[in-house]
Nucleic acid binder design. Structure first.
Lengths: 148, 148
DNA sequence: TTGAGTGCAAAAATTTTGCATGCTC
DNA sequence: GAGCATGCAAAATTTTTGCACTCAA
């Protein structure tokens, strides 16, 4: 899935919002990230600065929230203490997370059954689905071995 | 599932931690909440104060984090902007959440297949499971009707 | 007796907001 | 031209931490 600038603009305009340079850049940045990479607001800010784009943190916060509400980004709250965002990929690339409470490691996994469950539940309640996340919290093999 | 004071103490001691009045009270408070109720640190603080227990916010933050790491509480990050905690119920009571990005409403649902998927994934990676949460983010019927 | 746990206040970290200015529609 | 979006700084919110004191093991 590659959102073209035009499609993005059309979707924004349809809701009365506007296409801006900042929003385009942020979308492109997320689309060019290696699969599974997720960034916090601060990390995105830094990455943009490195690329020569001075976009304020306020705008970043406002934009990622907007894009999450549009279903373009997924908002992840894993173990790092702040929110992370990543591109919301459709079915074959869609993944979920396994999180260790001891080592804080995060493993991604895919499972095709989850989407089916999600669609059935959403249909029952009349929801339009933007994203679904199965997060498994547990203790990794390394964590189980550690003394603490 | 009702954790007795003794079982709680034993589990704490087994890891070198201690059973304290504050920890007992917090556990009891969560256990007496109606099913599906989740509280933020601040809400728990207020609830404890109402019940005549003056436990500092610091202790509350430290305790809920500890209990989440023990698997006694689940840490939820739904839409409210801060973490919420609830008792981690075993299978028949275990539930998941459907969240609307427009109205912020949260619906709980149960699904027995999720635990099976979780166990299979955890086994593959050698994880000991503490909790699993399928969170569906979408737009509720009311949200779809709203103009904004 | 030892050191883990608590409370308090201060600090840190993260996110939101008011307002003047800029830019899209 | 109207009003949504941005940037900046300030504020608000949420969470963590240092330290002296308390209490469980």
């Amino acid at each position: 899935m590659v959102y073209t600038e035009e499609a993005f603009k059309a979707e924004l305009n349809a809701k009365g919002w506007r296409s801006t340079r900042q929003r385009e850049i942020i979308l492109q940045t997320f689309q060019n990230l290696p699969e599974g990479t997720h960034l916090s607001a601060e990390e995105l800010h830094e990455k943009l600065r490195e690329a020569g784009h001075n976009i304020s943190l306020s705008t970043i916060y406002r934009t990622v929230k907007l894009m999450a509400r549009m279903g373009i980004l997924r908002e992840l709250e894993l173990t790092e203490g702040h929110k992370h965002y990543e591109i919301n990929q459709p079915a074959p690339h869609h993944h979920h997370h396994l999180v260790c409470v001891k080592t804080n490691q995060v493993i991604e996994f895919k499972n095709s059954a989850i989407l089916g469950i999600t669609q059935k539940v959403a249909e029952k309640y009349g929801f339009k689905v933007l994203d679904c996340q199965l997060t498994i919290i547990g203790i990794s093999p390394e964590g189980q071995r550690s003394i603490l």
